Amino acid sequence: MSAWARHARWLTVPALLALVACQSGPTRPGVDPGAPPVLTSATPTAAAAPASPPPAAPVALPAAEQALAQGVRSYQGGKYAMAEVQLKLALKEGLAASADRASAHKHLAFIYCTSQREKLCLDAFKAARAADPAFALSKTESGHPMWARTYQRAMAETRPRAARKTAR
């Protein structure tokens, strides 16, 4: 017998009904009595909320694009060795978009330059230009002291012949 039932047997029927009426509402198994009431169709509401569409299934990126995204995140997180592996994998898997290939080469160039691998840095910048002829670093990126000279050299060496002759 519960503690409440032991005490309730000494109460009169009117007192017992008053105690039951003081409860916060009917209790149901698995329902928190302190929780706010659940609105049902019988309960009037100010405005019915429109049903939200089910969440869209995530679109799976191809392996190359996943590796590129992971490589860029790793680079931004300062995990350069991991970023280098992921970016190389992205290129090996075959990135479809020329801008993505250029981005992978650009981030590899940054890694190579900051780890004093100048030849690889130069080649990576050249590969970025070869992947996307419109490739160029932003003003902030191009002025970075670790790779500014190497970048300028790579861009000068990959400029079309006609443009190189007029630049002399």
Rank of each mutant, 00 (worst) to 15 (best):
E84M: 07
S98E: 12
Q70S: 07
M82L: 13
E157M: 14
P62Y: 04
Y75M: 03
A90P: 09
S74H: 11
A128Y: 02
L11Q: 05
A21I: 02
D32E: 05
T45R: 05
A57H: 06
T150F: 12
A56R: 11
R168A: 11
H107C: 04
A18M: 08
A57K: 10
M155L: 08
T140V: 15
D123A: 09
K106Q: 12
R164S: 06
L61C: 09
A154I: 02
R159Q: 07
A51Q: 09
F135Q: 00
V85T: 10
R73V: 09
V85W: 02
A99Y: 02
T140N: 06
A5T: 13
V59N: 14
K106L: 04
H144A: 15
H107F: 15
S98T: 08
L17H: 15
S2W: 09
A81S: 07
S142D: 14
L89Q: 14
G77I: 12
I111P: 00
P55S: 12
D32M: 03
Y75W: 07
K126S: 03
L19D: 14
L122T: 08
P58R: 04
L19S: 12
A48C: 08
A64F: 04
P29I: 02
A69G: 07
K126N: 05
S103E: 09
P33L: 10
V59G: 12
V20Y: 12
A63Y: 02
A5D: 15
R149S: 15
L108S: 01
P160W: 07
E141C: 05
D123M: 02
P26C: 13
H105A: 11
F110S: 01
V31A: 13
R101E: 02
A67H: 02
A51S: 07
P29N: 10
L108T: 03
A46P: 06
A163K: 13
L39M: 09
R9G: 07
Q66W: 05
R129L: 11
H144G: 08
L11D: 08
G30C: 11
L17A: 15
D123Q: 05
R153N: 11
A3D: 14
A156E: 03
D32P: 13
I111S: 00
